[in-house]
Design a protein around this nucleic acid. Sequence first.
DNA 1: GGTCGCCAGGTTGCCAGACAAGTTGCAACC
DNA 2: GGTTGCAACTTGTCTGGCAACCTGGCGACC
Lengths: 268, 268
Amino acid sequence: MPADDAHLGESWALSPDSRRPLPELIEQKLREQIIGGALKAGDRLPTEPELARMLDVARSSLRTALQRLQLQGIVEVRRGLGWYVRRTDLAAIEEHLEGRLAAKRFSATDLLEVRISLETTATALAAVRAGDGELDELAKLNRRYQRAPVDDQQEVIESDEEFHLALIRASHNELLEEMYQALVPGLQDCKRHAHPSREVHNRSANEHEQVIWFLRRRDEAGAKTAMTTHLLGLYNDIVTDDAEPKATLTTYVGDHDEPRWPRSRGTT
Amino acid sequence: MPADDAHLGESWALSPDSRRPLPELIEQKLREQIIGGALKAGDRLPTEPELARMLDVARSSLRTALQRLQLQGIVEVRRGLGWYVRRTDLAAIEEHLEGRLAAKRFSATDLLEVRISLETTATALAAVRAGDGELDELAKLNRRYQRAPVDDQQEVIESDEEFHLALIRASHNELLEEMYQALVPGLQDCKRHAHPSREVHNRSANEHEQVIWFLRRRDEAGAKTAMTTHLLGLYNDIVTDDAEPKATLTTYVGDHDEPRWPRSRGTT
DNA sequence: GGTCGCCAGGTTGCCAGACAAGTTGCAACC
DNA sequence: GGTTGCAACTTGTCTGGCAACCTGGCGACC
């Protein structure tokens, strides 16, 4: 007997945002009710026909929404009995997001490792080959990045990307640039899932500046190391956030031979 | 264009295990088709009514299954058009590389630089992640390379390539492997234009051996340096031969910090 | 020639109603 | 008391229909 109606209110009107699929709106509405505390773990939801009436949608659309929530572990169904709230914590939602990331074939770890490989190489090459004009351009792009407001995610990501792309281009290796380009969409995904604080943003800008400093001095090893440090910082942030406890990061201090790239190659 | 029917078969009968919800059976069936390769990334599925007929289920049950797969990121829907197997990032990257790399011609210098970038990174990762079995395999492949007669160019190139591919694989980074694969045809070209002397061949085999030696000791920096030395040798040979007088090679001896990759990651 | 709007055909999104299958609780029966 | 059978309720699945949307082609217009 759904006496639930009493404390839930009679109708949960949906906002008529018709640009998104209806089940998604229903899902969001139900999630709000659950997370907001109107429904607690273990509670039974009203029956499907009842809920459909309250939300003013067809039972089939409601079921689609319920099944989505079920796949996220928020509700569960017992046939012949009804739908029950399983967990109300936010962890369930984060797990869902991780699932979407895991659906891609390779992990963020893989992606960032390849990125580090290509970009540190590009930095070393740029130290040898970049023209002075290109270095000025890099400095200008980093100023733009520096000025970007932390809460304007779009601008932060875009200005950062332009800096790194310009650096890649300064390596004067077209193939390397092509391969890096292939990674760009994935990298954007990664960055969108990161949450840049004021502090992290400033640190990044400073590290960019250091890289440029070494490049101006044509210090190949210094520039490469500075870039490696910078990228490993981000790598560490993202990878450890990502509920992948396999990876722990340390820094090696070595005195091994570090080979060096050839000088001179059309610095324009 | 659902000419798919042809190679997919007319009906995909479900096993009548009625103890589990029907959409789950459908979901599993579709997943098998996709993972198994009958449906490739980017392919369009037959229309809903068609699929429902083939599976002998109602369209509503089929839709439930499709939506589950959608939430898992395996398929995506475009309203008015149909259901598509979602292109994974890996597939997208593969496509990008195939398209661009085939269209442009890159210099041997570019190619070898990227190769060095990827392969030294892979070596460092392998020092951390490769299983003992994989190292044994590497040693075995290098013995094969060592035994290859210098005048049998085919065998020399092939055994060398297998060694390097196995090393890449030992990095346990699928994306890195994918990107390296894109370079393979170009590398073969390079090697065919080289003229390996008895001496060079022996030196290479020894350098391979050194890399393995460092890998067994899990010496990431040592292995990476050994591999860099090895590859720069070849790079030097080929680039200077190649009528490209821009590139001259030196070796840098430095004492800078060399960052280190994370330990442990499923070494099987 | 190039661009725009319109229309037809195909596909998914959503709805309404009906019946099958599972669960519970209770009354009737041994 | 223990068991059986039934009724009420709930979710699972099917059917059919219409709306919303996308594409491609065609003709009108600039």
